[in-house]
Design a protein around this nucleic acid. Structure first.
Lengths: 356, 356
DNA sequence: CGCTTACCGGTAAGCGCTTACCGCAACGCC
DNA sequence: GGCGTTGCGGTAAGCGCTTACCGGTAAGCG
């Protein structure tokens, strides 16, 4: 990257000033609405700007102001998966990012997006690069080990999403526990299922851990069997979910009455694998997800899941970051409520709930 | 936005230098791999950087280098639509953006994304803001009137997507003509349809204009009836497509044998409206799209359409822009080939083509 | 009519970084 | 041993902008 230089005959504020016959200070004042320039001065500046097509250099402004008006967003983009419907839909991350974008625009900020591959080694370097170009950084789940997050947070405001709050960094997440408890309760009490399993997400994900923990606790509280562990280890992807089911089936082991998935994508894969083996959902096995991504309601059967307010999470992440940037502090940990979305994959029918 | 100031006790290269006991020049050289610092010097700098968690300020680098290593991307985000499947899927723009992102990362650039609403008045201001923060700008279709594009291009490198090349700006697009011709030919010659209609996109879109023109010419060349005009005016959205069909039906007018849509989203809406009226696709009316967005193949019936290499378009847009930024010139107009995707909505069957 | 008050606008410093330029130390050679 | 050569590393200028500070002019007042 060293080998590239801009070679534009760059237009500067000096050019505008001389064209307008005023000083650079006046140009700057007009452009930023500071001070009270005389109408005449203002006009001349504005005309000069238009004639020249002048666009002030953001880097110079940022350097002078100490404010770039840019937030960085870093997330992982799976290049591994090519599962029907998965790679084609707006997923969890996309919806959150949209929320960030909307909130940022309200404050005149722009969003520097950077995706890194799951296998990318240079994550830390990429994040540092982004951090240098932004006033603050929003990190999606599992981007960095927590020590690294704390370290980074000493240098630049950081908001993590769906993580657990780290020293120095702020965090925005959803109430996984409540959501999972409500879901398990529905499965066990409303449907009477006695054997459940949890297809986990990536094991290093805080979200996954809290969901799994709530799953186990709530199942135990209702004396239901709760299968977890290595056999049920997924990775948040549809392919991961499918693989779990297929392995169980190939080993001729018995499936539980209900399979609770760490997220919707996993549920998608699970349902797909089940369908391929001609196992009826929810008749033979109920399946549930988590997130309520847009496609969830269009699956067959429509997926019972826990809705996270994804767009709002994104917006909140930005807002928290913004207040930190501007005022110097922001909430360290904000938890947003979730909502149980009962559809049909749990055994309910389209018209009102009912037993499977 | 004037009211926000960063108030960090910012860490600078001077801090690193004194911590390492060297000069700022050495720090910079180590960080950028310039010159040939002694091993000892290098080590001390690296250690100091790590201890301090130093991240160089991108704005200062950019100002000094004349290179921000950022490209801006501006596109329109429909806030109007809430059509099933439309707001939930990766659409044309999203796939292109992903292509840009991938290509940018290869060069160490980051992408500054900014969406504006269809109704947003301040598009020019937003674009100027982005332009100031980036080394170059990629504009999606219909972002600015062509005069404004040329004007902007005098100040900063600009690539337009799916537009027509403007003076000063570069452009990347697909071979709409060839695609549309192949499509119409398939409809008329392979299926024998004699009456066609074209549901247009936004009338100010160059893509739409060239598709419509090719549609008319090719239909005429084969002596098929070609309906176009105000009654068939869509707007690239599913809702727009649905509205056209409903208006025709409500007026008790006869539908043509095949409806050619300006893009896949429109086709989605058209098929939806048709289904609601119990009109069989493709039995009664054939429907085709343009773009081949990911969902196209999952519609019922799967959509016959023209595939644009969307991700490649994005990557190409970046590459063209990059070469312009670094070398001072790049191709003014690159046209990518398209491919006719024959599926079932035209009347072909899953297993090999056939007459409707 | 002269002095105070107010206010507009210009000059210059400085934001954090890169790099041209130069001084200096160490080494090799005669 | 003295001088030339090599090359590391420090000093300082400058990137384009914002803004503190100050000088000048015009209006207000006695």
């Amino acid at each position: 990257m060293r080998d590239v230089k801009k070679l534009k005959g760059t237009l500067t504020i000096y050019d505008v000033a001389s064209q307008a016959g005023v000083s650079i200070a006046s140009v700057s004042r007009v452009l930023n609405g500071q001070g009270s320039p005389r109408a005449n001065t203002r006009e001349r500046v504005i005309r000069a700007v238009q004639e020249l097509g002048f666009v002030p250099d953001g880097a110079a402004r940022a350097l002078s102001n100490g404010l770039k008006e840019v937030v960085g967003v870093v997330f992982r983009r799976g290049e591994e998966t090519h599962f029907e419907g998965e790679d084609e839909s707006l997923l969890f991350i996309d919806v959150i990012n949209r929320g960030i974008d909307v909130a940022a625009q309200r404050r005149g900020f722009d969003v520097l997006m950077s995706s890194v591959g799951y296998t990318d080694e240079k994550v830390a370097a990429r994040i540092a690069s982004i951090a240098g170009k932004a006033d603050g950084v929003i990190l999606h789940d599992r981007m960095l080990p927590s020590a690294a997050i704390s370290k980074l947070a000493e240098t630049v405001p950081v908001v993590t999403l769906a993580g657990s709050p780290q020293k120095g960094a702020m965090n925005v997440r959803c109430d996984n526990e409540a959501g999972m408890r409500a879901l398990v309760r529905h499965l066990v009490k409303d449907h009477g299922y006695r054997s459940l399993a949890y297809v986990s997400g990536r094991s290093d994900s805080p979200d996954n851990r809290s969901r799994q923990k709530a799953f186990e606790q709530e199942a135990a509280a209702h004396q239901a069997t709760a299968n977890t562990g290595p056999d049920w280890q997924g990775n948040y992807s549809a392919a991961g979910g499918a693989k779990v089911v297929e392995a169980i089936l190939d080993a001729h082991r018995k499936l539980p009455r209900a399979i609770v998935c760490a997220n919707d994508q996993t549920a998608l894969g699970v349902m797909h694998a089940l369908a391929r083996r001609r196992i009826n959902v929810p008749g033979d096995v109920a399946v549930t997800g988590f997130d309520d991504v847009p496609v969830a309601r269009h699956l067959h059967p429509p997926l019972t899941t826990v809705r996270q307010p994804m767009q709002e999470m994104g917006a909140t992440a930005f807002d928290v970051l913004y207040s930190r940037i501007s005022t110097g502090h922001g909430d360290a940990d904000v938890v947003l409520p979730v909502q149980l979305m009962v559809r049909e994959s749990c055994g309910c029918t389209a018209s009102g709930r009912s037993r499977a």
